[in-house]
Nucleic acid binder design. Structure first.
Lengths: 339, 339
DNA sequence: CTGAAAGCGCTTACAG
DNA sequence: CTGAAAGCGCTTACAG
């Protein structure tokens, strides 16, 4: 028996069974039109057996061309990783993967690096059916998506364009954080951003902070620090030092606490610290961090479902916008005010 | 002028220029056979202009079928993320992406989840030219790769199969760690693994620890703890407590230090802690962690180059094995022994 | 119940 | 310097 050196195609299977390619295709795709019983159980079994024996596996290349779809979803991110998502990223990816996998889609990773031409091509060469954007939608990308009619959804990023998007309620999350500190008796509650990328969460958290402080009658104590954490440490030496601070994200909070520790300032005894993101090792930091958790997996799932919806309706479904709830997790980096 | 609703194909461009598809294809691919000047500069310019005006962009679907290659590399990992790579993962991915991007390849993400059938298909449906394996090569996968003749390379994973692989020198890294502690005067140096997945680094680090302790004449102080960190904390209350410990990885080290902190045991004063992985927030932990860093980016780059090499030689290149050097980074979680 | 044929959008010998 | 034609491996009306 002469074994071909190349992998078997559908034609090989058909030949070996003495049936047409049509029949093989129909069987292997279960595309039996509901009405007519397409093939005899007999042929079906034979085809399946032969296909298995030959080790036939359909070429996705042929399939893609013929079907006009690839069942691949691009996952676009600004490398190294969306900075605001770091740590949250695992959860988001898990959520995305969960629903994509359930619907037999796969993830194509597209780092939006320095070379827009390169990813411009990938986005318009029809290799993906849609995409998920893990970074803000700014212009080389926005234009590209628009003109390529590629269905998409934003995750953890806001946009002025009418595209589906999933974000967390940063405003409410911040409010939970401020209220928690107020309940602990704090009044001098500052907010530290550090050097931060442009991201809607920055705006929302700032607004949430300002509004909530006002509502609590603490307008005079509003104090926003946008510089590096070093500045904050200095501030702690002055007489306008706050007793609590809300830090833009967990990595920054850890850095700040480490710097304070070096200066001999104790958290939470001398300063309560609350932050955002419940990603490792927030719970194992010293002290364990009080933080506002984003519902990362749910965000990933929701966004994935949105692209799929767009794909299935050929972009006719109106773009939805989901705002998911954040949840404050109280640990030991915040405590009742002393003195 | 009637605008077609569908995206232009190469045939549309050809027609609009009054040339053949061949000519358009040749021009757009720069596949001018070196010998003959394929097309007149005139035609070339015209074709390019028309293609641009029409917004033509080659279909990767057609291309893939015709070229028999997709320029996609699968990145296979055991979700949620290879546990031993957590944190290191960003560097590895960056390295992979760097060389893949340079060679015009793209990354397809394939989580090796509970359902081998699902990823089995992706791996054999010809959608990728090769793959990078970020987890150990065990059997449903190993068999699959073998029979599909898919070029591959392992990153941070060892294997009995003769496949290209890139690992870090865990033995040497551990040796650096032990020696560092010995130099600080420690003799009772323990090693904590915690509940750990099967991974070659476990074996290597254990061996490196045992051997180096012996060489230093400290055989009697060899003490390996494989249980949860709770056990170690208990050990610290006993009279056989070590003065230093090497912890399998940074996340575990942080957790341990946090638990010790809760028990009132101070690091590094009462216990020096050295670990592995220089991933965030190792430098910002309290105290900043002494750790053995893996050359993550380099590992990613090397592995990516290995798959590309396999692809270009159709698997004829002998599988290479790279062992890269780890580097101890001394911070403040280790100190000279006191008392 | 089954097959012949066209088509998906490219590339590439080959011939001129 | 350029084009006609076959082929990559599938799917899917359509006809029987």
């Amino acid at each position: 028996m002469i074994q071909s050196m190349t992998r078997p195609t559908i034609a090989d299977v058909a030949r070996a069974c003495g049936v047409s390619k049509t029949t093989v295709s129909v069987i292997l795709n279960n595309s039996l039109a509901s009405s007519s019983a397409r093939v005899s159980a007999d042929t079906e079994q034979r085809v399946r057996d032969v296909a298995a024996k030959l080790g036939y596996s359909p070429s996705w290349r042929g399939r893609a061309l013929s079907n006009r779809r690839t069942r691949m979803i691009g996952v676009l991110y600004a490398p190294p990783m969306p900075i605001v998502v770091r740590g949250n990223y695992e959860g988001i990816m898990a959520g995305i993967n969960e629903v994509l996998h359930k619907h037999a889609y796969h993830m194509l990773f597209v780092p939006l690096d320095d070379d827009p031409k390169a990813w411009g091509e990938v986005l318009s060469d029809q290799r993906m059916d849609g995409c998920l954007v893990l970074s803000r939608l700014r212009d080389p990308l926005a234009a590209l998506l628009r003109q390529s009619h590629l269905p998409c959804a934003l995750v953890n990023a806001d946009s002025d364009y009418p595209v589906p998007q999933v974000i967390a309620d940063e405003y409410d999350g911040t409010q939970q954080s401020v209220k928690h500190l107020v309940e602990l008796g704090h009044r001098k509650i500052a907010m530290l951003f550090g050097i931060v990328p442009p991201h809607f969460s920055v705006t929302q958290r700032r607004r949430g902070y300002i509004d909530t402080m006002r509502e609590a009658g603490l307008s005079e104590h509003i104090q926003i620090i946008e510089d590096a954490p070093e500045e904050f440490v200095e501030l702690m030496q002055s007489d306008v030092r706050p007793t609590a601070v809300i830090v833009y994200m967990h990595f920054l909070a850890m850095k700040l606490i480490r710097m304070l520790w070096e200066s001999g300032i104790k958290v939470p005894e001398q300063l309560s610290v609350s932050t955002f993101n419940d990603a490792s090792p927030a719970a194992d930091f010293i002290p364990p961090l009080t933080t506002v958790a984003l519902p990362t997996e749910e965000m990933g799932r929701a966004a994935a479902m949105m692209v799929l919806e767009q794909i299935e309706t050929s972009g006719k479904a109106p773009p939805r916008r989901a705002v998911l709830r954040e949840q404050l997790i109280v640990r030991r980096s915040t405590m009742v005010i002393t003195g």
